[in-house]
Design a protein around this nucleic acid. Structure first.
Length: 576
RNA sequence: CGGGGCGUGGCUCAGUCUGGUUAGAGCGUUGCGUUCGGGACGCAAAGGCCGGAGGUUCGAAUCCUCUCGCCCCGACCA
């Protein structure tokens, strides 16, 4: 591609709306342009990167027997009513009506669509297992898009769906996909992508992994042990605690005038936060009240709690509701609660610690010396605490460290969550009907692009891995108007193209500094500079992105081959 | 959805508090000339409904009301 023809200009200044590195460089380098909040157009450079990412993904999906399909983005609401997600998902699902007043939606994932397709195409165990995938637009009406391409409303995603006779088959295939994902992220040139066990959230199902590109600008929190053998999303991370027991002392009511928070109470009574019990009231989607107790120095992990309760929604209860069961907000206590009206869930931190300060369900009073076994023997004890940095890893026994990551891919074992309600069945050998067992597997294309920049850049711009760089080689002609330069550069450009090298040719005749800065922003890994200076010796300069100095190569019959080999060996780095 | 910030040439911003010639700068763009190895220089030029609507005023980018959009923090989130 000649740069005189390339659409999409570089911008010298940081756009004011961009805060994170990938966002800035994607705009400045002329890769993407904003259209509306969380909605972007891809310029030719961005589109080329997306295509290269997609090509790698296709190769790997095909290698595990995936078959590419394409399903529509707009779907009839009735399909989602079948699965139940039409009601389950609220504002994030964009709904609309067509001219006939028919309810429609824009798909945020394609489980319903693929089940609709498969249930009529596949009905025998002989056809199982198989996997289909697509690379297609998704739409999520995000409450708050952010971070450029990291969190958007409309985005391109590779989503794959596998169908199996039984769980064993799914387990096997799940592992195959897992391995393919590891290969994909390697080939995409991501330095540090870790797989972590994750919560399956609205997708449902039991087993799930997220692939996290570790980078400061990530919006997810990951805990890892020092050797990284233990890795978990904050939502499900667990730690091992060594609680101090002790001899239970007698329950004692104490005056704590106006002290409602853990902080205030612990300060007022001169006890540590870890010697207090925190009471939190939630209501679920059925407006049922749940009383939760955790030690004062911990935070409730609402994901763990939701999973335990099987609740789809959890909100803080209002004071009215809390009072209705005999509790007093600010001074709430597990003691003297009406157990019939409220479910009580207690974290092990409360069980393990003796003589806690808890509320007295009476304004301005707390109890000292609460002991779970004695004072609330029938409590439901479940781990519902949020892990903190430095807590002890349950596997290795070393302190857990906290990292930020971008979720670039995920894999889920869906089981029969969709096939059962939607009637996606097959007949087994005995002619008996069963719902298919499903898995689903996603990778965000735009996110991957952004994540690579976050992990690979300098202050001039991105440093693209050759595997997904918009071009493999950037040919820069300095003083292009001079015959000598033009002839050599034009000639080289044609030869490089003929050799199958993906080459970007800066034929604009700009000044050196201008041209080099643009080149840095485009981030192509290799660069050839044709200039009068080196041509005098019959040479051109070859260098890598980011290196100040390059090497001089003679312009002769071997040049193309030499360059080709250098690029080829660079590609090898992104193979497993 | 709560809190905060911002909307002025393509981009980054000044001007708004304290209303008053023809709304500015730098970058970018176009033309001509000189330059030519890390964002050159000169000359000339194009480009604005000051986000939108209503109001106050002799007069509004500037004050008031409403509205739309965008960004950041939080809530939320396959």
């Amino acid at each position: 591609m000649r740069m005189t023809e390339l659409i999409g200009k570089r911008i010298k200044e940081d756009p004011k709306d961009a805060k994170i590195t990938s966002h800035k460089f994607l705009i400045r380098g002329g890769y993407i342009r904003p259209v509306s909040a969380g909605v972007y157009s891809l310029l030719p450079l961005g589109k080329k990167i997306a295509e290269k990412i997609e090509k790698i993904i296709r190769e790997e999906m095909n290698s595990i027997h995936g078959q590419e399909i394409l399903m529509p983005v707009s779907l009839p609401a009735e399909l989602w009513k079948e699965s139940g997600r039409y009601e389950q998902i609220h504002d994030e699902l964009l709904r609309f009506k067509d001219r006939n007043d028919k309810e429609m939606l824009l798909a945020m994932t394609h489980e319903e669509a693929v089940v609709h397709l498969v249930r009529s195409e596949v009905n025998s165990y002989k056809q199982l297992p198989f996997m289909v995938y697509q690379i297609q637009t998704k739409y999520r009406d995000e409450a708050r898009p952010r971070g450029g391409m990291i969190r958007v409303r409309e985005f391109t995603m590779k989503d794959a769906y596998s169908f199996h006779e039984n769980q064993e088959s799914l387990n096997d295939y799940y592992q195959e996909v897992y391995d393919a994902y590891v290969r994909i992220f390697n080939r995409l040139g991501m330095n540090e992508v870790v797989s972590i066990k994750s919560d399956s959230g609205m997708m449902g199902g039991a087993v799930a992994h997220e692939f996290m590109a570790i980078t400061e600008s990530g919006e997810d929190t990951v805990f890892m042990s020092e050797d990284k053998s233990y890795r978990a999303n904050r939502e499900i991370a667990v730690a091992e605690y060594d609680f101090e027991g002790g001899t239970p002392l007698e329950l004692e009511i104490v005056s704590t005038p106006g002290k409602e928070t853990i902080e205030e109470v612990s300060e007022y009574l001169g006890v540590g936060r870890k010697n207090t019990g925190k009471a939190v009231f939630y209501v679920n989607e059925k407006e049922e009240l749940i009383f939760v107790m955790i030690r004062g120095d911990f935070e409730v992990n609402e994901t763990k709690l939701k999973n335990h309760l099987g609740a789809s929604v959890l909100n803080f209860a209002d004071d009215e509701k809390i009072k209705s069961v005999g509790a007093h907000p600010g001074y709430a206590s597990p003691l003297a609660l009406d157990h019939k009206k409220v479910r009580i869930v207690v974290d092990p931190s409360v069980e393990g610690t003796a003589n806690l300060v808890v509320g007295a369900n009476k304004e301005n009073y707390h109890y000292k010396n609460f002991n779970l076994q004695r004072d609330l023997p029938d409590a439901e004890i479940v781990d519902i605490s949020t892990v903190r940095e430095g807590d002890v890893c349950p596997v290795t026994g070393t302190p857990l460290r906290e990292y930020k990551g971008i979720e670039v891919g995920n894999i889920f074992q869906l089981g029969t969550k969709y096939s059962l309600p939607m009637g996606c069945n097959f007949l087994d050998k005995n002619g008996k009907s069963h719902p298919m067992v499903m898995g689903c597997y996603g990778i965000g294309i735009g996110r991957a692009m952004a994540a690579v920049i976050e992990q690979s850049h300098d202050h001039f711009g991105p440093v693209w891995p050759v595997s997904i760089a918009p071009y493999e080689l950037h040919l820069c002609a300095l003083n292009y108007k001079k015959d000598d330069v033009r002839n050599n550069a034009d000639n080289l450009y044609e030869k490089l193209k003929e050799a199958g090298i993906d080459v970007l040719f800066d034929d604009r005749g700009e000044k050196a500094g201008f041209m080099f800065n643009d080149a840095d922003l485009i981030g192509v890994p290799f660069r050839i500079i044709v200039s009068p200076k080196t041509l005098k010796e019959g040479k051109i300069e070859f260098k890598r992105r980011g290196c100040r100095d390059g090497e001089l190569l003679p312009v002769d019959g071997n040049l193309i081959k030499t360059v080709k080999n250098k690029i080829k060996s660079e590609f090898e780095k992104y193979r497993l």
